[in-house]
Design a protein around this nucleic acid. Structure first.
Lengths: 347, 347
DNA sequence: CATCCTTACGAAAACGTTATAGTGTTAATA
DNA sequence: TATTAACACTATAACGTTTTCGTAAGGATG
């Protein structure tokens, strides 16, 4: 009832292990008769080579390590599903590690997987890592010759393949859309500066306003603390945004760097008697389930997470399989797309 | 720059591999001097034993295989995060396989992982598997001595550990709540019969109505086809539900077996001029992000996915580590909880 | 001084593969 | 008839560990 091995087949059929191995690989060294006999036996008892033994022998695991900050998160799961798709096509397995936005967990997870379990990493760094700016674990793994592909939350200082969304451009387009719809005073709801993507989206917001000649009013920019993202902090988030809108009654457009902020802003605006989209038009970044099902449904900058994951897996696998020549590192930019919904419709 | 191994350390320090191995394990067989020297060297060059080699030697991978039907799905990610949490605590790694609701992918994924990569499975069967009722892959793995823990979508015929949500009871409570709020004609929006959990929730709905003496009206039960869950089928879902509500204008309460159906029902009801919760009160199953952020926010039966995942991992790991004595299979039921929100508030 | 016990290490097997290098038998060649 | 080639296998090493067993050197014992 235990797993069948070459050795057991060999013993059973009274041949050597080599003969069994070669037969199953259809080697010409073995006579047709013997091959048939062995193949039939293996087939009958459903022989499958032991993956671990193969990994040890080949020094390749055909496994990708994926480390993400969170799994209960629409965007990241979207990326994972893209990774899984191409990994599966190319006969790779994926191991998932969660950092839970913690630097330490990110490091231990990487160290654990780097000891032979995987051939390469695909990862998006934790918030804490971005804050600490401690990248030794990444540098070391790359240094040991293990390929790393960074996605979404990348790090300029680290040299490796990267797949990113064009955050700045996406934000710029979103704000330009608001401008085109006639908004004059557009607020930005963003995160604290240390979050890479938050910064980029903020830059896009500013770009658009400067380009249009309107210029930036710092009082229209609300930077929300990370703590507000934690479980049970919804009330604080609510009141902060509401206060902000109350202090800036002239706001007629809002660009938020994520869904949650955007929807909270809509709720706050409504409680202040504003109508969405008539009085204030809103666009969020990240196209998740919320945007689609909210009332009013939310116009968003879609990040195409699946594509992003696919691209990341492709880059990694290509690098793993073409180990003779070393292509230069590349950064793939996945375009964003503005998905227009009710929160920006003109009535 | 390549990975350090025992052999390399041995060569470098001119001792045998055994000595190195024993020193690092602090064996009393080796003199203090030698141990210190070797440990210092290993520390300096950051030696870490190769996981694959250990797996092969110990015939244990300390890895759990998790197979779920979908990853871009709030409930499943919630479960995975619970699994990951306890796996990590107990020093296990998790490999994720996605079946994408396909029987074939479920089978190939399992076969691939079963060949040495993992020590046991935690899985929720795909819709197609439930439909086909072909469980040979599960039976075979269990037969080969590999522990399997089924969760959420379980199979009565299969003997193994299971972790489930009390679907029937949760549904019963939800419907009783609607009754307590004064609803007289409560509709059920559910899936086709072959989906296990849909069936159980339907049973709970019926139970509650029978208990209350109201009885069941088949015309108040809407069974939605699986196809409606696919991408781009939102319109069909919408119109079907709207038609249903139009045909049953007397409905004053709705119980839906998932968030999406509940929210779509709310939208449809509103477009028919009904107010939620004044005219119709709505409760959904599954507490996801949508419920919380919808307007009106949705009262739901929360499934406590994290707990479910934790429990599943605990069961599996216990079985893996206590391989001498074999505890009987158990089915753990995780209680649901009704989370009341705006869709059932009395104004 | 031969025997015995420590001490401190090394050799070897094993986990399950694959690939390279033999090896024995038979048949073909010069 | 001696040499060689082809055939059909087997032995072995290797991947990186751990662990059991073996052993050389040195000191204690009778």
């Amino acid at each position: 009832m235990q797993k069948l091995t070459l050795k057991k087949i060999a013993r059973e059929l009274d041949v050597s292990i080599s003969t069994v191995s070669k037969s199953l690989k259809d080697s010409p060294e073995i006579s047709e008769d013997t091959k048939q006999k062995i193949k039939a036996f293996a087939e009958l008892y459903n022989y499958r080579p032991n993956t671990i033994a193969l990994s040890l022998k080949n020094r390749k695991t055909k496994t990708l390590g994926v480390i993400i900050p969170e799994i209960v998160h629409h965007f990241f799961t979207t990326v994972v599903s893209g990774i899984e798709k191409v990994a599966n096509e190319k006969d790779y397995t994926v191991i998932i590690g969660l950092s839970n936005e913690s630097f330490e967990k990110e490091v231990t997870n990487m160290e654990k997987l780097a000891n032979g379990s995987i051939d390469g990493f695909i990862l998006s760094v934790s918030r804490e890592t971005q804050l600490k700016k401690d990248y030794h674990h990444l540098l070391e793994t790359i240094d040991h010759g293990m390929p790393v592909v960074l996605f979404d939350r990348t790090i300029p200082e680290i040299e490796c393949d990267k797949v990113v969304v064009d955050d700045t451009e996406g934000a710029r387009n979103a704000v330009k859309k608001l401008l085109a719809l006639g908004c004059k005073r557009i607020a930005l709801i963003t995160t604290e500066a240390h979050v890479n993507v938050g910064e980029l989206r903020t830059a896009g917001y500013k770009d658009a306003l400067i380009e249009s000649g309107i210029g930036i009013s710092e009082e229209l920019i609300l930077k929300l603390k990370d703590e507000f993202n934690e479980e049970g902090m919804e009330d604080n988030l609510n009141t902060t945004i509401e206060l902000f809108l109350r202090n800036n009654p002239q706001v007629d457009g809002i660009f938020a760097v994520n869904e949650k902020y955007a929807l909270t802003a809509i709720k706050a605006a409504r409680s202040l008697g504003k109508d969405i989209p008539d009085d204030i038009k809103v666009i969020g970044f990240t196209d998740g389930v919320l945007s689609k099902y909210a009332t009013p449904s939310l116009t968003t900058v879609s990040q195409h997470g699946v594509q992003l994951g696919e691209k990341a897996a492709e880059l990694l696998i290509r690098r793993l399989e073409e180990d003779d020549y070393e292509p230069p590192y590349q950064t793939v930019v996945v375009e964003t797309r503005l998905i227009e919904r009710e929160s920006t419709s003109i009535t």
